[in-house]
Amino acid sequence: MKSVLLRELKQNLKLLIIWTLAIGGMGFYCILLYQSMQGEVQEMADMFSNMGAFSDAFGMSTLSIATLPGFFATEVGTIHGLGSGMFAALASIGILSKEEDRHSGEFLLALPISRSKVVTAKALCILVMLVVFTVVCGLFYVGGIAYLDMDFPAGDLMTYLVMQFLMNVEIAGICFLISAFSSRIKMGLGLGMALMLYAFDLIGRVVPDLKDYLFIGPYSYANASEIFSQSETPVLALSLAAVLIIASITGAYVCYNRRDLQS
C-alpha cells in the first residue's frame, strides 16, 4: 500500500505544486493589494455594502472590505473557495478511474494488493494533497498579513482554513465516489460539480427562498464572510458534510470492490 501511495503522490506532485502556488500566490498578491487600495477602499466599501442581494452574496453587507479581515474574506475568500474546490475535484475525480481509462488497472491489480488497499492508498493521497494545499496556502496568507503588519483575527483565519479543508474533503469525497463508479476520467463532471456547488451557495445567498437550503452545499459552512463576522457555527451543514464524507468514502470502497474491471 505504501508503494501505491508514494507512486500516487509522485504522479500528482505537479498538479499539487501548480494549484498550490497559483491559489496561494493569488491570495498573497491579493492581500498585498490591500495596502495600495487602503486609501480609496472606504468609498468602495460603502458602495459595495449597499448593493442589496449582491452585497449579501459576497458577504459585503456583514463585513466591510475597508478592513483587512473584510477584504480578506471577500477577495481571498472567493479565490481560495473556488480554487480549492476545483483542486479537490481535479485531484480526486480520476484517481481510481484512471487505472481503467489508461489501461494500467490490469498491471496494478494483478499484483498482490487488494482493491481495498488501492482505494485506501488513493484516498490517503488525496488527503495528504489537501492538507499540503491548505497548509501552504495558509502560509502564503499568513506571510501576506505579516508583511502588512496589521491586526488580523488569527483564530478566524484558522477556523476559515479548517472549514475550507473540510469543504475540500467533502467535494473530494463525492468525486472519489464518482471515480470508483466510473471507468473513464470524468474531469468535466468534477470541475462542473465544484463550480455548481459554488454557484448554488452564491445564488442561495441572493434568492431568499433558497436560503433555508444553503446547508446542503459544502460552501455554506466554509463561507469566509460568515466565519470572519463570527456567525453561528452551522451545525446542520457540518453534520450533513460528515455524513456525506463517510457515505462517499464507504460507497467508493463498496463499489470499487464489487464491480468488474474494464480492460
Binding site: 489508461r102 494500467s104 499484483l111
Partner: peptide, 14 residues
C-alpha cells in the same frame, strides 16, 4: 496473486 505471474494481452503501464 502473490504466487501468480500474469501477463495481459495488452501491456499497459504508467
Amino acid at each position: 496473486l502473490a504466487k501468480v505471474g500474469y501477463m495481459p494481452s495488452e501491456a499497459w503501464f504508467y
